[in-house]
Amino acid sequence: MRAGVPTGQRRLARLMRDALPYAGLVAVVVFFSLASDFFFNLRNFERLVTDSATLMLVAFGMTLVILLGEIDLSVGAVVALLAVILAQIMDAGFSWPLAVLAVLGLGFAIGLLNGVVTVLGDIPSFIVTLGMMAIATGLSFVFTGAISIAIMNEPFLMLFYDARFLGLPVPLWITGAAFTAILVFMMRTVPGRELFAVGANPGAARLSGVPLRRRKITVFAIMGVLVAMAAILSAARLGSGAPASVPALTLDAIAAVIIGGASLFGGRASLVRTLMGAALIAVLNNGMVLMNVNIDAQYLVKGVIILIAVVLERLASGART
């Protein structure tokens, strides 16, 4: 049997892997609808969508990063740090647009730094972003003295949490716009298409004239901007900036991509399935809170789902190395 030709077993695993985010989403929605009186109603769904915007944005970026065979462990810590900075800028009396622009610029710079150190230092992004995670966490504690900084700027809170446009919440519009932009980038632009080749076989991509380093740095920079957007929505939702404000975000974002059937070795990822994976995680988070499941048990459930997704991915890709 030649490697690459799917056997019956592998074909089944492949089918299950690709169906997992959809089937899982349907399963948890049905489960919570039956198990909780508070789950299946429009108000809860709206809150779910608004609350999950942060996760969505970060998971989209993580899809690109994982497609390259890289990882970004710093996202949760950087979201918290940028939210702190955002709150402090407004606290110092500056206008919200200035604060938002500053945070977007800072997010871009942090992503760029992650990318440049990974590429030019030839260091695994695993290590680089682990360092960035520690730095961002440390800085957010230093800046705040470990207390949360309230955001009093009403227009900001209004716009990025409560406001509606054409009847839909603004965070949903922002998430939708980011999704569309990244989907077009991945599927329809030259650098986007090249990412698949870079992730699956960097050697062949290089010989095909793909500038590997530039592509990697670009992806980390995009990730940085998405992290900044996530920080803005997260700060508006919580009404404050605080260190360690989103403890599960990094894990949830990686989980969403993995449930979406991406390969951690690179070369395989789907933005649509990441969206489904992130929705699955968001519903789980929402439903378990509604049912008063304690936070440790929530981690356990998510952990099991991630392991199932990873095992299916390995079975589906067979002995390919």
């Binding site: 698949f196 699956a200 076989n201 062949a204 010989l207 070369g267």
Partner: peptide, 13 residues
């Protein structure tokens, strides 16, 4: 390249 699998083609694509 002589190394079709390693440097020539991106096999899973």
């Amino acid at each position: 390249s002589e190394d079709r699998k390693g440097l020539g083609l991106v096999l899973p694509l």
